[in-house]
Amino acid sequence: MPTIIVTGGAGYIGSHTTLALCEQGYDVVVLDNLSTGVAHAVLPPARLVECELTNADQVRKAFQGLDVTGVIHFAASIVVPESVENPLKYYDNNLITTSNLLAAAGEFGVKHFLFSSSAAVYGIPTEFPVKEGITKDPINPYGRTKLINEWMIEDMALALTMESSPYTHPGMTFANLRYFNVAGCDIQGRLGQNSPQATHLIKVACQAAVGTRDKLMVFGDDYDTHDGSGVRDYIHVSDLADVHVAGLQYLERGGESGVFNCGYGHGYSVLDVANKLKEVSGVDFNVEIGPRRAGDPGALVADVSRMNESFGWKPKHDDLAVILKSALDWEKKLSGK
Rank of each mutant, 00 (worst) to 15 (best):
G11T: 02
G11R: 04
G11Y: 06
G11W: 03
Y12W: 12
Y12I: 02
Y12T: 00
Y12H: 10
I13W: 01
I13M: 14
I13L: 15
I13F: 09
G14E: 04
G14F: 07
G14W: 04
G14A: 04
S15H: 02
S15A: 15
S15Q: 04
H16S: 07
H16K: 05
H16F: 03
T17I: 02
T17A: 08
T17G: 01
L19N: 02
A20K: 00
L21H: 08
L21C: 06
C22F: 09
C22T: 12
E23S: 03
E23W: 04
G25N: 14
G25S: 12
G25F: 05
Y26K: 13
Y26R: 07
Y26D: 07
D27I: 14
V28G: 00
V28I: 10
V28C: 06
V28W: 03
V28D: 02
V28Q: 04
V28A: 00
V29R: 00
V29Y: 00
V30S: 01
L31K: 01
L31P: 01
L31V: 03
D32I: 12
D32F: 05
D32L: 05
N33W: 13
N33A: 02
L34W: 10
L34K: 12
S35A: 06
S35W: 03
S35Q: 12
T36W: 01
G37A: 13
G37R: 10
V38Y: 03
A39M: 10
A39R: 15
H40I: 02
A41V: 08
A41H: 15
A41C: 14
A41Q: 14
A41E: 05
V42I: 15
V42L: 07
L43A: 10
P44V: 14
P44E: 12
P44W: 03
P44T: 13
P45K: 12
P45E: 12
P45N: 14
A46E: 04
A46M: 08
R47S: 14
R47F: 02
R47L: 10
R47D: 10
L48H: 10
V49E: 11
E50Y: 00
C51N: 02
C51H: 01
E52Y: 12
E52H: 09
L53I: 09
L53S: 02
L53H: 07
L53M: 03
T54W: 10
T54C: 08
T54K: 11
N55T: 13
N55D: 15
N55S: 14
A56L: 07
A56T: 14
A56M: 00
A56P: 09
D57L: 08
D57F: 03
Q58W: 04
Q58T: 13
Q58D: 06
V59D: 02
V59Q: 08
V59G: 07
R60G: 11
R60V: 04
K61G: 08
